[in-house]
Nucleic acid binder design. Structure first.
Lengths: 341, 341
DNA sequence: CTGAAAGCGCTAACAT
DNA sequence: ATGTTAGCGCTTTCAG
């Protein structure tokens, strides 16, 4: 049923070692063209498929990469996965995808199981700003690339959105619409995406000359709708005039914010404009449709996988450079002119 | 750095074979309790992790299952994946997920690569009613389970929604709202989900005594929004009174239908009610929110994985039974009373 | 250019 | 109860 290299070699009348060389593109040149042809023919005729476990045992490679994501149900990640697989597949690599649910303990456990499987490398969409798994990977010198999230000190190559610029563009957009009281619903501060956007927000608010007191920030407990609702409730409970625009740290928070506004009898965008981040699927269909930054998710996966592939196939570790991807602002219904009263 | 079984055995002063038996729960009873304890202690102290490639080469297992999905970006699938992994992980199995894009050629290629990796079994969310990969799997006697889609002749165990009942409930719901002209936007007929729902639709229309002429059907080219738009355009172009309700074969088609209605100057639900299938994420947030059937996606994954796990760990192939999962109708804004004029 | 031989790390039959 | 041995299927030195 399943033919082995030895079967092929025997049928071709050569030694298994020779057959191996003939079959392997890199070593093919060591074998007579004639012999290569014969072996190749017989191999295809016998439908020979190398046993990748045997090969991996010998070569100390598994032709497998571990891909850790927080949660595949978050629509941000599947497009990244597709981008990664578009590169990995043709390179003969398969991804082992695991979901960490942003739980550091679970993350470390899953990392261990992936290490047992001798993954040739890792792609991490799960990095905390201070991430034990990343440190462990670096210590063990395993090839790995970060996507979407950075660590505080840049230990590994990474591909992320250009968040500082996005925050700037978001605030410019709102200011142009007449907004002067802009609040920020920040993401968790142990994630770079939460931290960097908050920092950029404060900087830009100062840079464009808005009053800090008019531009409050609140840190949410997670990147989900209910955290967004909680955050907007807090914001609305503050004394003084309420903000006329909210920059949420991602789309799920933005949706939660809009829910919260509705619950408080406010309308988006009439009373308060809302901006999100990432442009996950369906944001053009929710009500109101959401103004947000279109993270090039597929490309992000492609570029990260490309860096990893080169690292695995080459020998030298690359510089831990950060690739910043530009994300166009997609203006939809959720942002409008500041209320005039 | 990475310690092997031989290292552990040496440190424990026993033979590798003995260490193997001590470490393996099934063979542990062959070793003196004393020795087991010592080996275990040393193994944990040395942070020993068995090389699964070596083990797999020996045992002819990869502790890996191939999971073929049409497209992870379709929000129907990630929750199923999570359900599958919830069972597989604790059983020491990892899933290799591939996206086929409903392309039979790609499907067969990817299947080949997964076979090379010596997957212990397969979960297929990709089955066509007549599916060469399924036939190949059966021929090779590889453990495998279908999810969400069936093949025409039931060759493998499967876990699916109870579609016939759902169609019945959908039409009951619409009839109760006063609808008498109900159309069906069917899915592709080479998929069980398209075929079964269409057949059930026709049967139920007759059973409840609606006029066939008033209840037209149109088969769409794919399970996506633009196919839904095309389908509704065709339906509206027909002569005679237009339907007052549409049963779409899934949520994406339903959304496309609603888009098409909008484009034609019609309002959902005022002029035409729409029902979808599956209740993918965000259907409670699109406009109008969609009435649909809540497929228990996570549970579907769990049950399929459970069947597969038992098959892989046991020895006998199970009966190719179908597990039908009940899907509650979630009534939202997209269905309302039939227009009275 | 091809053959021979060793060995990756593990398990399982067999021997002690 | 433990040790011995062989071998899963492949790649890769090293000889010839």
């Amino acid at each position: 049923m399943v033919s082995t290299l030895a079967d092929v070699a025997e049928a071709a009348g050569v030694h298994p070692g020779t057959a191996s060389k003939a079959l392997n593109p890199e070593s093919r040149h060591l074998v007579a063209a004639e012999t290569v042809k014969r072996v190749l023919e017989i191999a295809t005729k016998m439908n020979y498929q190398p046993n990748s476990l045997a090969r991996g045992l010998r070569t100390k490679r598994s032709y497998t990469v571990g891909f850790m994501v927080p949660d595949l149900i978050n629509p941000l990640f599947p497009p990244i996965v597709r981008g990664v697989e578009a590169v990995l597949g043709p390179a003969g690599l398969s991804a082992l995808i695991v979901n960490t649910d942003n739980d550091p303990k679970r993350e470390m456990q899953l990392f261990d199981t992936l290490v047992n499987r001798r993954c040739d490398g890792f792609i991490l969409a799960t990095a905390f700003r201070n991430d034990p798994v990343v440190k462990e990977i670096v210590k063990r010198k395993i090839p790995a690339v970060l996507v979407n999230r950075l660590t505080e000190t840049q230990l590994l190559p990474a591909v992320v959105g250009d968040e500082a610029i996005e925050v700037r563009e978001a605030i410019d957009h709102l200011v142009k619409l007449g907004h002067r009281r802009i609040a920020h619903v920040a993401g968790p501060q142990n994630l770079s995406t939460g931290y960097i956007r908050l920092r950029a927000f404060k900087e830009v608010i100062n840079a464009v000359g808005l009053a800090e007191a008019d531009c409050p920030t609140v840190v949410s407990t997670g990147y989900n709708e209910s955290a967004g609702m909680d955050a907007i409730a807090k914001l609305l409970a503050r004394p003084g005039p309420r903000p006329t625009a909210i920059l949420a740290a991602n789309d799920q928070l933005a949706i939660g914010v809009i829910d919260g506004l509705k619950a408080a009898g406010l309308d988006c965008p009439r009373d308060i404009s809302v901006i999100g981040f990432n442009d996950i699927p369906m944001m053009d269909r929710v009500h109101p449709t959401l103004t947000t930054f279109a993270l090039p998710k597929h490309q992000m996966g492609v570029e990260a996988a490309e860096i990893l592939r080169a690292w695995i196939e080459g020998d030298a570790a690359p510089e831990p450079k950060i690739v910043y991807l530009r994300c166009p602002l997609v203006i939809r219904e959720s942002t409008g002119p500041a209320p005039t009263n």
